[in-house]
Amino acid sequence: MVVMAVISAVGLVIDDRVLVGAPIWFKPFKFAVSFVAYCLSLAWMLSLLPRGRRVGWWAGTVVALASLVEMAIITGQVIRGKRSHFNHETPLDEALFQAMAVTVVILWLGTLAVAVLLLRARIADRASAWAMRCGILLALAGAAVGFLMTRPAPGQRRGVSKVIGAHSVGVSDGGPSMPLTGWSTTGGDLRIPHFVGMHALQLLPLLIAVLTALAPRFGRLTDDRVRLRLVLLASGAYGAVFALVLWQALRGQPLTHPDGATLGVAGLILVAIVLGAYGSLRGPTPPAGRVADDAGTSKEVTA
């Protein structure tokens, strides 16, 4: 996937073809970069399993192979100058899209198997364990949004229309969009909750890394109970944001133009985060202890 990201980046520079309102190599570039982050995250999580590593290896291999097949179809369609998703123009295009649909289901089931292993695993650091568990469950929810995109959009009819399904809601694909992401600025876009949900796989474990880095400066963060509460709060808030952007997209509302209801819910989520963080940090702190300094001596520390 790293190699494909480089090839797609070169394609963006030397190939000026445009498909559905975007440079034709933009889709394989986005998918390649996304698969790099996705598969590296799963591989790291599998390396932490105390048990079930053989099952995890098979699940990870299934995910990797399904990703490879999907990427091969996307790239092949780019070379042909055809859209890969929702394409029913010819029997070949339809067969390729159906094959992609199968690989997505297989990829989702492989990730579900990894999630079950993580839920059953006994990992010493509870905060890290729940960051990974919540991250992969939210990633599964984000990936499942892709199934909503395959429904016929208004005006599309199975067996008649050349395109069945859409990223956008309330508007046609390929209209005005945000830079870099390509998300619609005139209607809802299901790629937004898809993106938000799937990247919980990286962002929630990243929170643990940040908390660990800050622990030497903020004594409260050395308490595993405090870190666990913060991780659960972040996971709940992340899930709420995912639900909010999904609700916004399904109503045909662009991310850049939220209405009063969307802003109101976003405000409630923000208040809940602030109050939750305050409550989490007010909890018990670790008792005074002795830690070794860099010179090998000991000194008293308090939280």
Rank of each mutant, 00 (worst) to 15 (best):
K30Y: 09
R217Q: 14
A5E: 03
Q202T: 11
A121C: 09
A240Y: 12
L230M: 14
L119W: 11
V2P: 01
V145P: 06
L275C: 09
R220W: 03
L140F: 05
C39D: 13
A261T: 15
R17W: 03
T75K: 03
V301E: 13
F31A: 06
D16Y: 00
M178K: 05
P154Q: 06
S8K: 05
T297H: 15
G260N: 13
M4R: 07
D259E: 08
R191A: 07
F31Y: 10
S161L: 11
F26G: 00
G52T: 05
L244T: 12
A249C: 09
G197M: 06
A200N: 01
S67P: 10
A131I: 09
V78S: 06
A295W: 07
L221G: 09
P176E: 09
L203S: 14
D93I: 08
S235L: 12
A72C: 14
R122T: 12
R157I: 13
L49E: 12
V265Q: 03
R282A: 13
V231N: 13
P154A: 07
H88I: 03
L203P: 04
P23E: 00
G52H: 08
G279V: 03
L211H: 07
Y38D: 02
P286I: 10
T222Y: 01
K299G: 15
F147M: 12
I164E: 02
L275I: 14
L148D: 10
L137N: 00
V231A: 13
Q202L: 11
I208T: 10
A243S: 15
L119T: 04
G175V: 02
G182A: 02
Y38G: 05
L214N: 05
L140H: 05
L281H: 07
V55H: 08
C134R: 01
P28L: 01
L107D: 05
S280R: 08
D15M: 01
A59G: 11
L244H: 11
F242C: 08
I7H: 02
L207Q: 06
T103M: 15
W57T: 13
V78L: 02
F31V: 14
V271Q: 10
L48Q: 14
A32C: 04
A99I: 09
Q77E: 11
I7L: 14
S161F: 08
P154V: 03
T185G: 01
A261P: 02
V169T: 03
A22C: 00
T256I: 14
T111N: 02
G135L: 02
D16E: 05
A237D: 06
A113T: 15
A272C: 11
S235G: 15
L65D: 04
L232Y: 06
R122H: 13
L233W: 11
E94I: 07
K299E: 15
V55K: 12
T111M: 12
T185L: 02
V196K: 02
A66T: 14
L46K: 07
A66Y: 09
V3H: 00
G142D: 00
A234D: 08
V171M: 01
A213K: 11
A37V: 14
G239R: 05
R133G: 01
G276V: 08
S184R: 01
L180R: 05
P179Q: 00
S128K: 10
V274W: 04
P216C: 07
I24Y: 01
